[in-house]
Design a protein around this nucleic acid. Structure first.
Lengths: 185, 185
DNA sequence: CATCGACATGTCAGTGCTGACATGTCGAAG
DNA sequence: CTTCGACATGTCAGCACTGACATGTCGATG
């Protein structure tokens, strides 16, 4: 249920905004952290209004509705932010595949892992670029954006090193499997 | 759509198994990587049978049905394993909260981050325990289980270090914010 | 022989999310 | 004055997943 809180948080940051405005922020700033589609966002704003956590504070041309958080909404948001433990994302597609890597020849397993390492390296490069274009930004959002970015940098580094280590492990396991070539005594 | 492939993979590993058997493996071995509920698994086995990727190879007492992968199933599985790029999990509840940490006092932000660091340390400890009870295991599954475990160890280490680093960043940003206490010339 | 836990399968309502469809307005450029 | 892109909102079918409900059998233990 975090889209609800993401929307609440953006409204708290912005003071007021329309669904369209929020959608822009989601696509620009939050896309790597919590993507949202247009249909989902408008639906959620409707529910949020029904629950009186947000309120329509202005209506403009083209059917525009500007929302702002209510007192109850602010309270709900802060409760989520500080009291509720973040849910760890348990599903991991890469690790699921690793679990089954024994079903294919070692060579293909190594290829898979080195492919993951390359993908992680590429992700790292992309984030470095973002970092470069971020240095001129100012304000408190820059601090928190920079912290999230750092997570990505560290994550991709870890993934890269892990995948290369794992490829080595496969090789080591294979050579110790083959009875015709044991280590010299 | 990875539950489908997880089921296919387990059947390929085991030769044949019932839904109940598979459920046991999911809950024991795959729970930290790809959890599945009973209803989901039985539904998927039905669809898999309709698609002729698995086949009922035996029926036993208590309505038991033993499944095995078909030739088409094996092919589909290997295609998924080696050809399809793993989907990266984009949503990250912790990073979403970090994005909004500017909305609360620095003190509470630091508390949040140090809480994350502690949670990561706890996860690391739990995994170390698992590692201890794994050393006596044998076979190829031990190799791949060990690789997945290593991912968890590295991930929790990274998360811990990152969260502590981030808490320091918050402090640094705050002290540079306060105009009454600039660094001495 | 009753009972209970493990074995075993299936269904269903609800939720979060996706991608597509549908509709309309305002301002600027040609 | 037309047209086009940005602005703006809403709906709907479909899918993966969750948690609860429903039903029944076999073997062991008391």
């Amino acid at each position: 249920m975090s889209l609800r809180h993401a929307a609440l948080g953006l409204l708290a940051l912005r003071g007021e905004a329309s669904g369209y405005d929020l959608l822009g922020i989601f696509n620009e700033s939050l896309d790597h952290v919590w993507p949202a589609t247009q249909s989902q966002l408008y639906t959620e704003l409707g529910k949020l209004t029904d629950a009186e956590l947000v309120r329509v504070v202005a209506e403009g041309g083209r059917g525009r509705k500007a929302y702002a958080v209510t007192e109850a909404g602010r309270k709900e948001f802060e409760h989520w932010l500080l009291e509720e433990p973040p849910t760890t994302n348990r599903r991991n597609d890469t690790l699921l595949r690793v679990f089954f890597l024994g079903l294919v020849p070692t060579e293909q397993g190594r290829e898979f892992l080195l492919g993951r390492a390359a993908a992680a390296a590429e992700m790292h490069d992309r984030l470095r670029d973002v970092e470069g274009s971020l240095t001129d930004e100012q304000g408190p959002l820059a601090v928190h954006g920079r912290i999230a970015l750092e997570w990505g940098l560290r994550y991709s580094t870890m993934q890269n090193e892990w995948a290369r280590w794992a490829a080595q492990q496969l090789d080591a396991a294979e050579s110790s499997d083959v009875p015709s070539a044991p280590p010299a005594p």
